[in-house]
Computed example of a mutant assay.
Amino acid sequence: MALYNVFDVAGSAMSAQSLRLNLTASNLANAETTASSPEEAYRARHPVFAAKLQQAQAGQAETSNGVEVGVRGVVETDAPVQALHQPNSPLADENGYVYRSNVNPVEEMVNMISASRSYQNSVEVMSTSRDLMLQTLRIGR
């Protein structure tokens, strides 16, 4: 039934924002981590989403809408990692440097707020749609 497509779209949006929130939390948890080489340093990760296209197939009455979670995968940012001179660190390389992740905590907090609000909006869409459907059923009584 076409009326229920709104639940599919909102549900897929909630799944997408949940993935985004999990990646942001992981980025924040690793913001201050260090490694012994730039290649081993943690790099911020972000999801890449793609909209599902309606695919009308012969004989198929309904199509799918929404967001494909992680279709393109998760990408790491290419921002450079920060080299810190800490010769007493057990992770220091031969030059006395350790390498901190490229996570920007301010950007990640903004990303977390945005994802949280998008998730809340999807919940509100589902709630409003449910209420409208119940009101429509009450009219038919």
Score class of each variant (00 low, 15 high):
Asn5Met: 11
Val6Tyr: 02
Val6Ala: 10
Phe7Lys: 06
Asp8Asn: 15
Val9Asp: 03
Ala10Thr: 04
Gly11Asn: 08
Gln17Asp: 05
Ser18Tyr: 08
Leu19Val: 06
Arg20Cys: 04
Leu21Met: 15
Asn22Pro: 01
Leu23Tyr: 02
Ser26Thr: 11
Asn27Gln: 07
Leu28Asn: 06
Ala29Val: 07
Ala35Phe: 05
Pro38Gln: 10
Ala44Gln: 10
His46Met: 11
His46Cys: 00
Pro47Gln: 07
Val48Met: 13
Val48Trp: 00
Phe49Arg: 04
Phe49Cys: 05
Gln54Pro: 06
Ala58Trp: 01
Gln60Leu: 08
Glu62Tyr: 13
Ser64Trp: 06
Val67Tyr: 01
Val69Gln: 06
Gly70Pro: 02
Val71Thr: 12
Glu76Phe: 05
Glu76Lys: 15
Thr77Arg: 11
Asp78Glu: 15
Pro80Ile: 04
Val81Phe: 03
Gln86His: 08
Asn88Ile: 00
Ser89Val: 02
Ser89Tyr: 00
Glu94Asn: 15
Tyr99Asn: 04
Val103Glu: 03
Asn104Ser: 12
Glu107Asp: 12
Glu107Gln: 13
Glu108Arg: 05
Met109Asn: 10
Asn111Glu: 14
Ala115Thr: 05
Ser116His: 07
Ser118Met: 12
Ser122Gly: 11
Val125Ile: 13
Val125Gly: 02
Thr128Arg: 15
Arg138Ala: 11
Ile139Cys: 03
